[in-house]
Design a protein around this nucleic acid. Structure first.
Length: 577
RNA sequence: GCGCCUGUAGCUCAGCGGAUAGAGCAGCGGUCUUCUAAACCGCUGGUCGCAGGUUCGAUUCCUGCCAGGCGCGCCA
């Protein structure tokens, strides 16, 4: 909002200067960049336009800046300064700032919400864990990232739907069912029920593998949850399932685990518009459809008894197999079918969040999207780096073989929803992050999330106090009628400028798909408020006009903090702490 | 070997080609008779991995090295 206003004012000034013959642009349309300077002495906003214009106009940058400044005069600015090698520094006028404080109050929970940003329909796919076990902590990171990114992009004016892809077919589901079945046999044996030799063999193989005696490839899952599932099945059905095929155990386990994942994510505040099972694709013959489509596009060929996609023609390292020699489709082929399905559902922009260990998969998937007839950027992949769990400075070891691991649910139960979300969101996705469980809890008093929440609670407390005073209560009820001319102090001004930059910061974070940027903003905003609170007493029955103006500023701060906490981060904005 | 990510204060990490590189934690020292001290104010702390290049200007872009992580299946 602010950037746009300054930007268009600059463009206008540039136009005027050029048509007055003061600046020769020689056909160049310069990119206008406006930024917030690091040093507050350099104004609220600054531009380097004169520096970039120096060369094409063949003038020295300070000369160019002088010409621009002449044409920039506007009541929006209190001061426009030429500084350093040719920077133009802007200081916004109080008049302008006060008008826009009113705007925050008016728009309230919609302050920060942008108009429709483009005409694309985005599908954001994330987590997409296999239903073969509990979510691990890495999933938690993707869940937070995806959920916040969706909220962020929607607020920035993008049309976004979210989706969880359920990998519910293939070998891993069979292994899951077989594991539960084996444990079920173990349950029966423990109750003195006689097993057939075959059943006993399955159970023995399971225990052998778990104890590490089996040197073969791992075929079973060994987490405690497998035992629990088997036990539940026994409690519900007794020995009735003894003769049932593995497929029944697959289905039972799949459903139970999926339900648990859904509940956990729901409790964590992450919801999806769609839970899309891979099995649906198989049922609809979508994989064959996709293969046919690629065949018609002329990008496949048979080689060595398999069907290949010539992905190298689209920038991949090498060609990839779609149908194996045994006639079954590869995971890649299934994934192509899935993405084609997304496109045909009308989503022309797909964003997937993947673990960084899948990065080698990106070129082939983008090749497929192009072969299907869509531009490469129809698919954007966000890679998230790993999370290392620590406890008291020691890395928490996880073993896939024994299923010994801390689940995501355990972490968020232990640390709490708000802190877990905030701590995971603070870092850019492409940075591996260390998460110390003890630190996350013990930090609680100095935790950044509480720092921001505390600012909100403080504001609410001010309004509670005001409501108890007869003279102040009426003013607090009618803050839109405040005389904002009472606001003159630096702390008030800095806070207000920060509030007004919220829509810009939000849009920037959304376009870059980097929700973590807003945690920095939220911290800075909270710090400015705390500082204001210390310097500028809000409630004063001897100066009602000033009190009312400060209440207006305070309420505007509450609006922005609340919007970012609840709207973007999905965490609570407590009224008291 | 090839590819991707990372390297910034004691620790965890922000940082959009700009001006004297930041925050939190840790450490040291101040501030509550007044709206919540989960706060505020000050101090200490840096070869932005190393070396080149592009640029008026590089932590930021490019190249090469060094270090750490990950990936290079007719697995999913």
């Amino acid at each position: 909002m602010l950037l746009k206003a300054i930007h268009s004012r600059l463009a206008q000034a540039l136009d005027q200067a050029a048509s007055a013959g003061l600046l020769e642009l020689n056909g160049i349309t310069p990119e206008i960049k406006v930024e917030v300077p690091r040093d507050t002495r350099h104004g609220d906003y600054a531009t380097n336009l004169a520096l970039t214009l120096a060369k094409p106009s063949r003038k020295n940058p300070r000369q160019v800046a002088e010409i621009l400044v002449e044409h920039l005069k506007d009541q929006m600015f209190e001061n426009i300064e030429l500084a350093g090698p040719g920077f133009i520094n802007f200081k916004l006028s109080w008049t302008w700032l006060r008008e826009h404080l009113d705007l925050i109050l008016e728009r309230n929970e919609n302050f920060g919400q942008h108009e429709r940003a483009d005409s694309h329909r985005y599908l954001l796919e994330f987590v997409s864990a296999n239903p073969t076990g509990p979510l691990h902590f890495g999933h938690g990171r993707w869940a937070v990232l995806g959920d916040c990114l969706a909220r962020l992009m929607r607020t920035a004016g993008f049309e976004v739907a979210t989706e969880f892809y359920i990998n519910d077919t293939g070998a891993q589901i069979n292994n899951l069912g077989a594991s539960v079945q084996a444990c079920y046999f173990g349950q029966l044996a423990a109750k003195g029920i006689t097993l057939t030799a075959e059943e006993q063999g399955v159970y023995d193989a399971y225990t052998a593998e778990k104890s590490g005696n089996n040197k073969d490839q791992i075929r079973f899952y060994h987490g405690d949850y497998i035992q629990e599932l088997a036990q539940k099945l026994y409690e519900e059905y007794g020995s009735d399932l003894q003769a049932e095929p593995v497929s029944l155990f697959c289905e039972q386990a799949r459903t139970a685990i999926l339900t648990a994942q859904q509940q956990e994510l729901e409790e964590f505040g992450v919801s999806f518009d769609e839970w899309f099972p891979e099995s649906r694709l198989h049922g609809e013959g979508a994989i064959q459809d996709a293969l046919n489509h690629l065949h018609e596009a002329g990008v496949t060929e048979e080689r060595d008894g398999a069907l290949w996609f010539r992905s190298s023609e689209y920038g991949d390292d090498k060609d990839r197999v779609l149908v194996k020699q045994d006639g079954s489709s590869t995971y890649f082929a299934n994934d192509i079918a899935y993405h084609w399905n997304k496109l045909r559902r009308g989503y022309d922009r797909m964003i997937n969040i993947w673990g960084a260990d899948h990065h080698g998969y990106i070129p082939r998937m983008q090749a497929a999207v192009q072969a299907l007839g869509y531009p490469k950027d129809a698919l954007q992949i966000l890679l998230g780096q790993i999370v290392h769990l620590y406890r008291n400075g020691e890395m928490v070891k996880m073993s896939k073989r024994t299923g010994d691991m801390i689940t995501f649910g355990e972490v968020f139960e232990e640390v709490g929803r708000d802190a877990t979300r905030y701590l995971l969101m603070q870092r850019s996705a492409e940075t591996a992050l260390d998460f110390d469980l003890e630190l996350a809890k013990q930090q609680s008093s100095d935790n950044p999330v509480f720092y921001v929440q505390y600012a909100h609670a403080r504001i609410c407390s001010i309004f509670r106090t005001a409501a108890q005073s007869e003279s102040l209560a009426a003013l607090a009820e009618n803050i839109q009628g405040a005389d904002l001319g009472q606001l003159i102090k630096d702390e008030e001004r800095t806070l207000l400028v920060k509030l007004l930059s919220y829509p810009d910061e939000l849009a920037f974070a959304a376009v870059h798909r980097e929700p973590h940027r807003l945690t920095t903003y939220a911290s800075e905003l909270a710090a400015l408020f705390h500082s204001f609170y210390k310097q500028c007493r809000v409630l004063d029955d001897k100066n009602l006009e000033l009190s009312q103006a400060r209440l207006a500023l305070t309420h505007a701060t509450r609006i922005v903090i609340r919007n970012v906490l609840t709207g973007i981060f999905g965490i609570s904005a407590p009224e008291s702490m």
